[in-house]
Design a protein around this nucleic acid. Structure first.
Length: 740
DNA sequence: CCTGGGATATTTTTT
DNA sequence: ATATCCCAGG
């Protein structure tokens, strides 16, 4: 392997960074400056120079997708044994350390990773049990957020309790303590634990730390600006021997402060390591200079940043287009229109387009417009496959088989499908378990010793215990695919859904089949395929990770999800003050700066054309608000911008109607005046509204006939007769109704 | 004591 | 649309 070959095609700064000598290195790499390339080539160069082997490298990326791409690139560069390197996300690598060292912690190797939903259920149980006079007024979400913040700042329950001053903080410290104990009793960890526990482990067991310190000769980190304090300690401890820590990041792209990311980590790198070599990559290979300069004209309004300016050889370019529209529906329609134009004029492919937005809720109107315009799209985030009820149910069964201590999963499925075990009975079992100091699952087996249960319930409890135990026994003896299929069959879920016979239950069956298929594929592709590894993958793989860039469709996602990606044409929707920047009750300068960085991330995803759209009125889930254009639009260098106005509002957003280009009336201040009157529309039978007698299709009930309509706008309700379901009342705003 | 129907609240960003 | 809470009926 020639080291020279690894430098071919790199610019001067990139070459220097790749060849930096041992010791701490900070690479300040602007958007599109080839930072992943530098990181990959640095690894290849280290290995090719004989400084170490692949298994002595730790490379941390932000997403599994980035890690996968890195591994692929290294293989292409001819690096041997790439798979033996520890290349992954912080969370993934943290989990790997914890599984190996579980015995040192209060954990078994088979621990389960609790997701946000599990955390919420846990917190509810704890708050009920806590019995503090105020505990009913404490929201689980707030308590979890408090604990998460503590963990991200690397504060354990004890430290947190010591720092507590206010009443709420004392309560929170108590609950933090019980929360931690609960997780351990359930042999579970949460996302934050994956970062925090390895550091605690290293502190408590210097020998363990020594092992990893010696194992990894070089540590490389991508997206360093988004690391939190726990991650900072993790890296600092691991690299404290050789100090070969190579970090790449861009302070302008730090967008996870709310998750504990600490900008100090990157801004103070030079203070931590006074001898650090610093390289700056300021040549951008992605965007036109118009886009770069426009993005720059906004980001310079941030105070808390390293001064730098990206440049490119791609002079000029199309002006940034600001689309000013009447309302959210019109905005979506205009975006579709622009896509159609671009497709025609520039012979673009659908995969060249991305539509970005600040909040997932915005995707709905966009989706509707795309469907109406018959433009294929794929959506990242929002409701994920693994978050569907039926999928979570199956996973809960599997989790219970792997880890019977997981009482959250047990509670989820012990009475689903219905086994006649209700809250009261379960409460008795729970009490028995507490008295006997045994896990909830073990208490099931001893149902005969529990007072106040009917014979029927006793037998149901024992048989559930036997059912799960049987599969725990089978684990490892048959393939995970066989096990999962048999288990799902035995739960009776499929049978239950089949009986129901609705369109919704059919789709649930399909989803379960898809999950079983995913398990099968997983087993085919992974040599280490076990139920444990499958469940870990499910917990840690993000939606962007599975984004297929080869499929021919427009991509929809949040700006956060778009980090690290690029597209020839990018739309950013909803550029209104309050929405982007998103403003909550308390607005601080730091919050606003983070929003600005997020805007910067969004704009710099565009290679050739950037559209920024906003709507004068927007319907939130509650009501319609009048908006002002985003301050970020005002900050854009006006020489680089072209404004296009589409001021007429579209039609009410609750029912589907192609917007018309003819102007009915000039925009006035009175909303009602320009909005068509719904009652009249519903009577005129024009086909694209919902008159009585119309045939519609409902996603779960199928086809039916409208009997009656009531309400208007977002409150529009229709009574529909379905053949299988009978008469149903449907609030149109919640369901995608197709008019036939 | 369990089940199921009906009303109600819920959406910032994510590993 | 989903989750959750409350109430009546079996």
């Amino acid at each position: 392997m020639q080291t020279d070959a690894l430098l071919a095609g790199l610019n001067e700064e990139q070459k220097q960074a790749v060849q930096g000598h041992d010791g701490p290195i900070l690479v300040l790499a602007g958007a599109g400056s080839g930072k992943t390339r530098v990181l990959t080539h640095r690894i290849a160069w280290i290995i090719a120079s004989g400084k170490c082997t692949a298994d002595e490298i730790m490379a941390v990326t932000f997403t599994n997708k980035a890690a996968g791409e890195m591994r692929e690139r290294l293989e292409e560069l001819g690096i041997p044994d790439v798979h033996s390197g520890w290349i992954g996300t912080f969370h993934g690598l943290g989990a790997r350390v914890l599984r190996r060292e579980a015995e040192h912690l209060d954990l078994k190797r088979s621990f389960i990773i609790y997701d946000a939903d599990d955390q919420k259920r846990t917190m509810k149980l704890l708050l009920e049990e806590y019995g503090h006079p105020d505990s009913s007024r404490i929201s689980p979400a707030l308590m979890l957020a408090t604990i998460s913040r503590a963990k991200n700042a690397f504060l354990g329950p004890t430290e947190f309790a010591l720092a507590a001053t206010k009443e709420f903080e004392h309560i929170a410290a108590d609950i933090y303590t019980s929360y931690t104990a609960f997780l351990r009793e359930n042999n579970a960890v949460d996302f934050d634990d994956l970062l925090m526990l390895p550091v605690l482990l290293f502190q408590a067991y210097p020998m363990v730390l020594d092992y990893y310190k010696n194992k990894f000769k070089y540590i490389l980190v991508d997206e360093y600006q988004d690391t939190n304090r726990a991650q900072y300690h993790f890296l600092k401890m691991l690299s404290s021997g050789h100090r070969n820590i190579f970090v790449v990041g861009d302070d302008d792209q730090s967008i996870y402060r709310w998750r504990g990311a600490d900008l100090r980590n990157i801004l103070d790198f030079k203070k931590d390591y006074p001898d650090a070599q610093v390289f700056r990559l300021e040549q951008n290979y992605r965007s036109t200079s118009v886009i770069l300069d426009a993005a720059h004209s906004v980001i310079v309004n941030n105070r808390n940043r390293h001064e730098k300016k990206l440049w490119t050889e791609r002079r000029g370019g199309e002006l940034v287009k600001v689309l000013q529209t009447g309302d959210g529906n019109r905005e979506a329609a205009v975006i579709c229109e622009m896509i159609m134009q671009e497709l025609k004029r520039h012979r673009r492919d659908l995969r060249d387009f991305a539509i970005l937005y600040r909040t997932n809720a915005q995707s709905r109107v966009l989706e509707e417009a795309l469907r109406r315009a018959v433009i294929p799209y794929k959506i990242v985030g929002g409701l994920r496959f693994y978050e569907r009820k039926e999928i979570k149910d199956v996973l809960a069964y599997l989790r219970l088989v792997v880890n019977p201590l997981d009482s959250i999963s047990l509670r989820r499925v012990i009475n689903f499908p219905s086994r006649g075990i209700g809250d009261v009975s379960l409460g008795r079992v729970q009490q028995f378990a507490l008295d006997q100091h045994i896990p909830l699952f073990d208490a099931l087996r001893r149902a005969d010793d529990i007072n106040g249960l009917s014979a029927r319930v006793r037998s149901a409890l024992k048989s559930f215990h036997g059912f799960i135990s049987k599969y725990t026994e089978l684990k490892g003896k048959i393939t995970i695919s066989e096990l999962s299929s048999a288990l799902v069959e035995e739960t009776g879920m499929l049978h239950m859904y089949k009986e129901e016979g609705t369109e919704e239950s059919r789709s649930r069956i399909d989803n379960i089949r898809e999950l079983l298929n995913a398990i099968y594929e997983f087993a085919q592709n992974r040599s280490d395929a076990t139920l444990d590894t499958f469940l870990e993958e499910v917990a840690l793989v993000a939606d962007v990770d599975s984004l297929d860039s080869s499929a021919s469709a427009v991509t929809l996602m949040t700006v956060h999800s778009a980090k690290g990606l690029e597209f020839p044409v990018v739309f950013i929707a909803g550029l209104e003050d309050g929405l982007f920047p998103l403003l909550r009750s308390a607005e601080t300068r730091d919050d606003l700066e983070e929003e600005r960085r997020l805007f910067y991330v969004g704009t710099t995803r565009a290679k050739e054309t950037l559209y920024l759209s906003w709507a004068k009125r927007r319907r939130t889930y509650k009501d319609t608000v009048r908006s002002k254009r985003s301050r970020f639009l005002a900050e854009l260098d006006s020489d680089l911008v072209e404004v296009k106005e589409f001021d007429v509002p579209a039609y009410p957003e609750t029912y589907q109607r192609p917007y018309r280009t003819t102007r009915k009336k000039r925009q006035t201040d009175d909303f009602e005046q320009v909005m068509p009157d719904y009652e009249n529309f519903s009577q005129d039978g024009s086909g694209d509204t919902i008159p009585v007698g119309a045939e519609i299709r409902h996603p779960s009930f199928g086809v039916g006939v409208v009997q009656e309509t009531s309400g208007r706008g977002e409150n529009l309700k229709i009574k529909v007769y379905f053949k299988d379901e009978g008469l149903k009342t449907i609030v149109v705003k919640y369901v995608k109704i197709d008019i036939l």
